[in-house]
Design a protein around this nucleic acid. Structure first.
Lengths: 204, 204
DNA sequence: GTCTATAAATTGATAGAC
DNA sequence: GTCTATCAATTTATAGAC
């Protein structure tokens, strides 16, 4: 039906525009007018489809979190060689965050603000780091890697992947004289450099 | 003189209140009224002393950046043993960011937004990572550590120090069942864990 | 479904009394 | 220096025509 097609089309256009603006500017920095302009529609339609700014933001947050956090643990294949698993995970993960540079900072910021509101979203997201922790512990028990607190290893890994992306504007100026191309090369090389760094540290 | 004393006292109270609010909520999320309430003075006085919100924000940003970034390289002593230097730097650095958890995220966010405005602040801050790069290269040349791109090592180090602080609300829920005391212990133990992790990776 | 017009509330900033 | 009163602009949200 045309009506339904239009409806979904407009609703989709709004959500796409809202993603762009909210992800870049956060909840406080976002104006409904800017979303409407980007979607090419009237401002009133935002309320027609999403009632309020808060509900539209919630839709964007839900998308961002579903898009991002589960993928943290998605590249995980349990039967793989552990070092190959690390190499694969880091390569995929750095690739994702490099292509979606606003999402990690957006999530961190909004969770820092409305902690109570989104704690539930996190808990119901199905994120379960236990498979990771168990696998690390298994490798330690089997004498394949040095003893280390699995939580420490996990945070080390994710920190090294995310920090150069969310801190890019600062780091690019201080360490790379604001050379964008050089920084892109730097990020690309980290797909293997970070894995080497970790494996060097934990191998026996 | 009493007048001067009052002036500086009020001006100082305003700046202190502004730091609290701006650092936690960012520029967009901050209301002048909230700063005035926290300082215990009238809203008009904010403009009397700082003319505009933008100028007050600039004062806070300047403070935050001066407080934070230079300390990145302050714990550096050139004559020290390299591994001792790493241990000392990481311990001091994690301690600083743990006690000022809002500053790193504040700086990253605001630089992400007004990139052109604050690029100058960065450049004129006197930050010079070259001493770090040179020292790392020297250790490589002397055969004390494995070959590694100094930039990679620097970002690995800072990333592992900062990420668990700025991502705390998220990580604490996912990995520590929102147990604050456990997370505090986790952060404290990282002062040595991160150094061990790095040294294990680069030692020959 | 989509638009125009406008309400209602917020907020940065200024004028002027004391 | 500090306060009250108020302006002017912005912004979310709604009412109503088409």
């Amino acid at each position: 039906m045309k009506m339904t097609a239009d409806k979904e089309n407009t609703e989709e256009k709004i959500l796409e525009a809202a993603k762009e603006v909210f992800l870049e500017k956060g909840n406080d920095g976002t104006r409904m007018q800017e979303i409407a302009d980007k979607a090419g529609i009237n401002k009133s339609l935002l309320h027609y489809y999403y009632r309020s700014k808060e509900k539209l933001f919630a839709a964007v947050f839900k998308y961002a979190f579903s898009q991002f956090a589960p993928r943290i643990f998605s590249a995980f294949k349990d039967d793989e060689d552990f070092f190959a698993l690390i190499r694969n995970f880091i390569s995929v993960y750095i690739d994702i965050v490099s292509k979606n540079p606003f999402i990690p900072l957006f999530i961190i910021n909004e969770i820092n603000k409305k902690n109570t509101v989104f704690t539930n979203v996190i808990k119901m997201s199905g994120i379960n780091p236990q498979v990771f922790k168990d696998r690390i512990q298994k490798e330690i028990n089997n004498g394949k890697i040095k003893s280390i607190d699995p939580n420490q290893l996990i945070i080390n890994t994710i920190g090294m992947c995310i920090f150069p992306v969310i801190g890019r504007p600062l780091i690019q100026v201080i360490l790379f004289e604001d050379n964008k191309a050089e920084y892109d090369k730097f990020l690309e090389s980290r797909k293997t450099e970070v894995a080497d760094f970790i494996i060097n540290s934990i191998k026996i």
